[in-house]
């Protein structure tokens, strides 16, 4: 019974913060989508056509088709990392909004959950536009229903990326240091998770390194879905399990550390 009340309060308190993000989004959505999407489109274009001219086929498909799922999956890495590092710092420390919110019945886990949910929802339009463009204009998504199924997977993945980024944020006290998260976490992940080339051909150390990166597990699900390759049940369970564990574990850790940090 108490857990029911707790859950009810939990979601009752998330709503106003989501509404707050909704108000913000209403004024910035166009610029936001451009910001979130433009560099992904540039990578798609530059490598899809640039490298595509030199690399004719990859893993048995046109290079552009190979590239689309990886680019789509990497959208969330950068959007979520920015939002959960610099964005969270700005709202909690620079604007001092967290102390203002904590002076009401709202508690920290609810604030952090609202942050994660909003940022994840924010990636949806960008990914949809990318899919529509790649699928209908470039003809580089062979499986329509696969793309539909890929959306919930990408949402879970983005929750996980956000939760991980939060774990960095709770240990960072100077905003200057957020650049490290981008340089030492997001960028290497983008380059070593098989976005650009088939990992099965990579040297063994590189292959095992890539398996430790969450983005690899997103791409290993999303690429077969979009291109219509075979996907085993074991693969699905493993990859979803990894993402779910990272999301829940990262969120729990961030809540615990952030609470300690704010209360000191």
């Amino acid at each position: 019974m108490t857990s029911v009340i707790y859950l009810r309060d939990f979601f009752a308190n998330i709503r106003p913060i989501l509404l707050r993000f909704g108000y913000e989004y209403r004024t910035v959505w166009k610029a936001q989508i451009v910001r979130d999407l433009i560099d992904r489109l540039l990578y798609l274009f530059a490598f899809g056509f640039g490298m595509g001219a030199l690399v004719t086929s990859m893993d048995g498909m046109p290079y552009l088709t190979f590239l689309v799922p990886g680019i789509a999956a990497s959208t969330g890495v950068f959007v979520m990392t920015m939002a959960m590092t610099y964005g969270v710092w700005e709202r909690s420390t620079s604007y001092k909004l967290y102390p203002a919110w904590l002076a009401t019945p709202v508690r920290l886990p609810q604030i952090l959950m609202a942050e994660l949910l909003y940022a994840t929802l924010r990636t949806l339009p960008s990914i949809l536009i990318l899919f529509l463009l790649a699928g209908f204009v470039l003809g580089a998504i062979p499986s329509f229903w696969g793309a539909v199924l890929a959306l919930p997977v990408l949402m879970l993945a983005n929750l996980a990326f956000g939760a991980i980024a939060m774990c960095f944020t709770v240990h960072i006290y100077r905003p200057l240091h957020f650049a490290y998260v981008n340089t030492l976490w997001a960028t290497p992940m983008f380059l070593f998770s098989g976005v650009f080339f088939d990992l099965s051909q990579a040297p063994a150390p590189l292959y095992w390194f890539s398996q430790a990166l969450p983005l690899t597990h997103v791409i290993s699900l999303v690429r077969p879905l979009l291109t219509g390759q075979e996907l085993t049940a074991l693969q699905v369970v493993t990859d979803l399990g990894v993402l779910l564990t990272l999301f829940i574990g990262g969120y729990a850790y961030a809540c615990w550390r952030f609470q300690k940090r704010l209360l000191d």
Binding site: M51, L184, T187, P188, F196, A202, P203
Partner: peptide, 25 residues
Amino acid sequence: QYLILRLVEPAIFFYGLGAGFAMLI
């Protein structure tokens, strides 16, 4: 911080893309 950010990032690009595409191109 400057050296880490401005040297590691291009080095990662260099190694990440270099190792991958060297196999193909």
